[in-house]
């Protein structure tokens, strides 16, 4: 009996903590910007999958490479075919953890600066990425804004000499997503 009671209590405890919740979206925005001397390239994607667990601080982001849109459709083709090889590596993911979870009160509306560290996988190559962002707690969910830079060379993406002046070695990535609270 005592055993059952304890199990029951521990269940209760676990379920109440998970009630606090997860936040999720399937149409967050992610964009990147390459500022090279000869050409400025911007690509946008409105189908970012993002999830944040407010209890554990775990974060998960996933995006389909083919759903990045470019101003020039031909660039999009070359991006997929020649650089990202999206037939072989269809997605980019980020799995990480918020390291200053104690500073963020998911129950109270407001703007919180957050730190996150984890693993970014692009083009089949995984690297540790640590960055800072903003989490804004709203009535119905949270809004996440992160800006960080990646070195193209780190992810085994080769830029041929002929286009060296058109593609920057460092690309700025911006994540802007509104996540809704889900109880699961």
């Amino acid at each position: 009996m005592k055993y059952l009671l304890f199990v029951f209590i521990s269940f209760l405890f676990v379920s109440t903590t998970t009630m606090k919740g997860k936040y999720i979206t399937k149409n967050g925005k992610v964009s990147f910007y390459s500022d090279a001397p000869l050409e400025k390239i911007e690509a946008k994607n409105n189908q970012l999958n993002a999830a944040i667990d407010a209890n554990s601080g775990e974060v998960y982001f996933k995006v389909l490479i083919k759903s990045f849109l470019f101003e020039k459709a031909l660039m999009q083709e070359h991006f997929n075919e020649n650089y990202m090889e999206s037939d072989k590596f269809p997605t980019a993911t980020y799995k990480g953890k918020i390291t200053n979870l104690q500073d963020i009160d998911f129950a109270k509306a407001g703007k919180y600066s957050s730190e996150v560290e984890g693993k970014l996988t692009i083009h089949g190559v995984t690297k540790d990425v640590k960055t800072k962002g903003t989490i804004t707690v709203l009535k119905e969910g949270i809004s996440v804004y992160v800006k960080f830079k990646v070195q193209i060379g780190d992810y085994d993406i080769k830029i041929p000499g002929a286009v060296a002046g058109k593609i920057a070695e460092e690309v700025e990535i911006t994540v802007d997503a509104d996540l809704k609270n889900v109880v699961k």
């Binding site: 775990e58 083919k66 799995k95």
Partner: peptide, 16 residues
């Protein structure tokens, strides 16, 4: 925990 977050999107099948 991490897998749970991933699984939130698992049911989604897209057309490539």
């Amino acid at each position: 925990a991490q897998d749970d977050l991933e699984n939130l999107f698992a049911d989604e099948e897209t057309t490539e």
